[in-house]
Computed example of a mutant assay.
Amino acid sequence: MSGILYVTGTPIGNLSDLSPRAVETLESVDFIAAEDTRVTLKLLNHFGIKKPMVSYFEHNKRERGEIICARIEQGENCAIVTDAGMPCISDPGEDLVKLCEERGIKTVVIPGPSAVISALAVSGLSTGRFTFEGFLSVNKKSRSDHLKSLANEHRTMIFYEAPHKLPQTLRDLYASFGDRKLTIVREITKIHEEVIRTTTKNAAENLSDGSVKGEIVLVLEGAPQIDDTEEFTLEYAVETAKKLIENGARATDAAKEAAALTGFKKNEIYKELI
């Protein structure tokens, strides 16, 4: 009889956040698939748990995924964990769950801490609708395309970011979205946890010097909702485009975004700009 894959959430900082159910699961499974076995070993030692582990991460997920599934099909139960938080969220565990689905292996979730939800909850921004955008690419074109695709996103946006890339990302957010509310949440549940409620303009000008350290989650205000019954003038559309240009947008892109917001034709706005 086939076993079960338990998708098990682990603490994102404070070890006390590991739930009793997660402890019970880690104690009862036959083996644990871990992103970094050294990190998981510290967690297991803290709770006095001794279990065999296999490493499962981005660069070995294809080979190890097959091995893990084969063992589960032979009747073993496995818990998959990431270094911190919920597996499968910006994590190769997503591929293992898909592989289990393809092979008819049962998966059970053991909920745990999530940096995405935790940061959103304390952001002070709208939580009714939101979109998780993960990490921005280091490739300039991919990053630019990603940000452009979000120009008219009305939902609150959440990004992960590494501290060494944060300065450029803060500048890119201001250039792409203009001045909006931004909450920077760092070191969630850890000793130096901090919630910085600011704006993209202030962050780009005052926080992009590399002084903000630690694990970072960025929560960005969505584009303002436009009342469809509101009437806009061409003058307003041109002024909107000019503000976008001041924030770093190209004239053609500014005209396109202003057109989408006001209903005027892109060429009409662009002609007034030049």
Rank of each mutant, 00 (worst) to 15 (best):
K271F: 05
D36V: 11
V116L: 13
S55E: 09
M157Q: 10
F232A: 06
N45P: 03
I188H: 07
G222V: 12
G210E: 07
E73T: 11
I274G: 13
N60E: 05
G65A: 11
F31R: 04
V116R: 00
V54W: 13
P113I: 01
Y6H: 06
T37C: 13
M86D: 04
E187Q: 12
K140L: 14
A115I: 09
L120A: 10
K201I: 04
F31Y: 13
L218V: 07
A79T: 03
L136D: 04
E193R: 10
K242M: 11
A175D: 04
I188M: 15
L18M: 15
H164E: 04
L170Y: 00
T82M: 04
A79M: 11
E193M: 12
S211C: 02
N202Y: 14
V108T: 10
L26C: 09
T200E: 06
P167T: 00
D36P: 12
K190W: 09
A22C: 06
K181V: 01
L41I: 14
A79V: 01
F47N: 06
G85P: 09
E193G: 13
L170H: 01
R155Y: 00
L182R: 01
V109F: 05
G3I: 10
A22F: 05
H146V: 04
D228T: 14
T8D: 10
A34G: 05
A84W: 03
